[in-house]
Simulated assay, not measured.
Amino acid sequence: MSSSPPLSEYGSSTGVNALVGGLASIVLAFLPFSTVLGGALAGYLEGPDTDAGLKVGLYAGLVAIVPLALVGFLFGGFFLAFVPMMGPRGGAVGALGFVAFLFVGLLGLLYTVGLSAVGGVLGAYLHREL
């Protein structure tokens, strides 16, 4: 017996819809609020239920955050690699840089996933109204 991914009430896979929405957010990253567009696409594909649209929008945001996190860790690691070269105050600069890195990462997560969830709800609403 094979196990297949869960399907929404309208016959589409939530995982596939989230992946499509997340990839759309990544491809459209040059546009402001691209995460809303990707979440809206995922929510539209998911169907008219706004709760399901919110959920698939969150998942799409998590897909879209992966490249942002990878780039963030790359630059964060690059910065922390040069902290010892900053002399006796390198530790303080490194600690401040690490706190700033975490703060910016948290803001990026909230922006990406939050706006993608809003887009998911909007996409579900559009599916219901169109």
Rank of each mutant, 00 (worst) to 15 (best):
Y111A: 09
A81R: 12
E9V: 11
A40H: 05
G123Q: 03
L109M: 08
A24L: 15
G105N: 08
I26R: 07
S2E: 11
F79C: 11
A29C: 14
G105P: 04
G15S: 14
M1S: 15
P67W: 02
E46D: 11
P88R: 09
V104Q: 08
V71H: 11
V71G: 06
L74N: 13
A60H: 03
A18G: 14
S3C: 08
T14F: 15
G61C: 01
A29T: 15
P84M: 09
G97K: 04
S3I: 14
G87T: 06
V71F: 12
G76L: 08
L96S: 07
L74P: 07
S13D: 13
A95N: 01
L102I: 10
S2R: 10
G105L: 06
G38E: 02
V16N: 14
F82V: 12
N17G: 09
F73C: 13
F98K: 00
L96H: 00
L80Q: 15
T35R: 03
L80R: 12
A18K: 06
S13P: 07
L54Q: 05
S13T: 08
G77H: 07
S4N: 10
G11D: 05
V36A: 10
E9Y: 08
F75Y: 15
G39S: 03
L68R: 08
L80A: 15
D51S: 12
G76A: 10
G57Y: 01
A69N: 02
P6V: 09
G72V: 05
D51R: 14
A40E: 05
E129W: 08
G57R: 00
Y10I: 13
P84A: 07
A69K: 01
P88I: 06
S4K: 06
P48Y: 04
L115D: 02
P67C: 03
A81E: 15
V36I: 13
G120I: 00
G114L: 00
L45P: 03
F75L: 15
A29W: 12
G57C: 05
V20E: 13
V121T: 06
G90M: 03
L28A: 15
V36S: 06
P84Q: 09
V83R: 01
I26H: 10
G108Y: 00
G120F: 05
P32L: 11
L28D: 12
G108K: 02
V20A: 15
V93A: 11
L28C: 13
F103S: 15
E129F: 09
L126I: 12
V16T: 15
V121G: 01
V113Y: 00
G61Q: 00
A60Q: 01
L45V: 05
L80C: 07
G90V: 03
G108S: 11
M1N: 13
A60I: 01
G15V: 14
G39D: 04
P6N: 09
G87W: 04
L7P: 05
A40W: 06
V71Q: 13
F98E: 07
L7T: 10
E129I: 10
L45R: 07
A100S: 12
A69D: 00
A92Q: 06
M86P: 10
G72D: 08
L54Y: 08
G43N: 05
A117S: 05
L107S: 10
L68P: 00
L62N: 02
D49F: 02
T35Y: 05
G105E: 05
L45S: 02
V118G: 02
G94Y: 04
L70D: 01
A124I: 09
V66S: 00
